[in-house]
Amino acid sequence: LVRYRTISKIPQITLNFVDLKGDPFLASPTSDREIIAPKIKERTHNVTEKVTQVLSLGADVLPEYKLQAPRIHRWTILHYSPFKAVWDWLILLLVIYTAVFTPYSAAFLLKETEEGPPATECGYACQPLAVVDLIVDIMFIVDILINFRTTYVNANEEVVSHPGRIAVHYFKGWFLIDMVAAIPFDLLIFGSGSEELIGLLKTARLLRLVRVARKLDRYSEYGAAVLFLLMCTFALIAHWLACIWYAIGNMEQPHMDSRIGWLHNLGDQIGKPYNSSGLGGPSIKDKYVTALYFTFSSLTSVGFGNVSPNTNSEKIFSICVMLIGSLMYASIFGNVSAIIQRLYSGTARYHTQMLRVREFIRFHQIPNPLRQRLEEYFQHAWSYTNGIDMNAVLKGFPECLQADICLHLNRSLLQHCKPFRGATKGCLRALAMKFKTTHAPPGDTLVHAGDLLTALYFISRGSIEILRGDVVVAILGKNDIFGEPLNLYARPGKSNGDVRALTYCDLHKIHR
């Protein structure tokens, strides 16, 4: 019993810090008490220290592992850092350059016999395009090294910054494609005289377009951006097909006994025919423009016929181009109408809503002055909100995010209106959640004399007048207030005048 009563005193000691020596009952000389009392004092002292730490809000209350900052290894790049964003855009520009100039170089340097010394005699450094290609190869190699040090988000939505895990993730992902696209074939085969082989191998750079397509997928929600990307894709495919079309004609031209190829026909049409040795002929500019003209006309199913396939190889390629053109029509131009419709969806919704308003007016036989006010209010409210119901949009977000959005939407009023000066951010967040926005066209009466005042109004834009009878008592403008002081009276009061809008007004109100 003594032991039980001794232990039962522990909660009292913990909360009230009572010393055991003052209790005459606990001072009985028993061996059990002498053993338990020192333990009680020690526990009391420890609990006292913990309570003191909690009340003082000291940093040592938290466990040590929670006080440590997340460790980022040296030379690790955050995937959302500004440097990584700028670097990704730079790589994107280099990939676009590669997609345009690599097929052009591979096709127009394929057994090209233009006048001038061969590239091997001039030297590697004197070729501007080769120098640019070398810079692109170096940048792609540097990009691989950067990807080995860039964080990523795993399946659990955690940012991984450990170098080993980053390397394994990159090896399992895009490393092989990036490595093949970054191989400097110019340096590996330079001086061997195989410019045709170098041009063909350099087309491996186009593998990076797969990554670019995935990154550009984030802009699919913007109709104008999608339309622009589709047109660029169409032009890029036409450019690639033009390079292939020229390569076919250029390879067949020296081996044909009869002059029936499209390059021969082009030379005869523009007065620059090929001679018996295969030299001469149109310039590279004429060849490229004509090839691009043929691919565009074939892809769009126009086909004027002034550039036509004559050999079997050219006919087979033309059939493939027609098939590609039909697929592009289905996948690209078939979506253009939907994209344009999405661009004008706001206008369509406006006309639909206006039609419903006019049908309501016609069905209920609203008189002319009231009908005009109804239409003007709808037009003004639509121009202010673009038909978007803010309350319906915010309803799907958590309250903390709703408060931040409301604070942002009402920031101008909260910053410049005098009653809100000096208020804490928590108070402003709470008030912003209570605001209701209303609009009024010129001549609209917001409050009639004798109406119950259940709200306090803040003028965000425009001006109003307060009338008693036919006498203008006051004219209020931006950041002015009218209405009933909230919670100042037990019952809502009545208006002693009319409140009429002089201009288009936007008002925020808080109800009782």
Rank of each mutant, 00 (worst) to 15 (best):
Q365T: 04
L206C: 05
Y170G: 01
C417Y: 12
I339C: 06
V131C: 08
T445C: 12
F333G: 03
W87D: 04
C406N: 08
P82H: 07
G249D: 01
V210F: 04
D143T: 01
Y80A: 08
K287S: 08
V159S: 01
C243T: 01
Q353M: 03
L263G: 01
V212C: 06
P273K: 04
V226N: 09
A381V: 10
F378P: 06
I388F: 15
L374K: 01
K287C: 05
L401P: 01
R358Q: 07
M231E: 11
N306A: 03
V336M: 10
S258I: 07
A348N: 03
N310Q: 04
G303C: 03
Q68L: 12
L216K: 04
L431E: 02
S105Q: 15
G271L: 01
N156D: 09
N275E: 04
T113A: 05
L266F: 01
R429L: 03
Y329C: 14
I177A: 10
R358C: 03
D133W: 01
H264S: 10
Q253R: 15
Q353H: 10
A430Q: 11
P117A: 13
P419Q: 04
Y104I: 01
S276T: 11
Y246N: 01
K66E: 07
V210I: 13
T98G: 01
H79G: 01
L266P: 01
W240F: 03
I340W: 09
V159W: 03
F296V: 13
L188H: 14
I339T: 03
N310M: 01
L93R: 01
A381T: 13
F185V: 05
A224W: 12
K202F: 01
R373A: 04
D217E: 09
P369H: 03
Q402G: 02
P282R: 01
G267Y: 01
I135K: 01
M179Y: 03
C126E: 01
A167N: 01
N310D: 03
A330C: 03
E375R: 05
D217Q: 08
A440D: 01
Q341C: 05
I244A: 05
H408P: 01
C417E: 09
F360W: 01
P103F: 01
E121Y: 12
L176M: 13
S337R: 06
P254C: 15
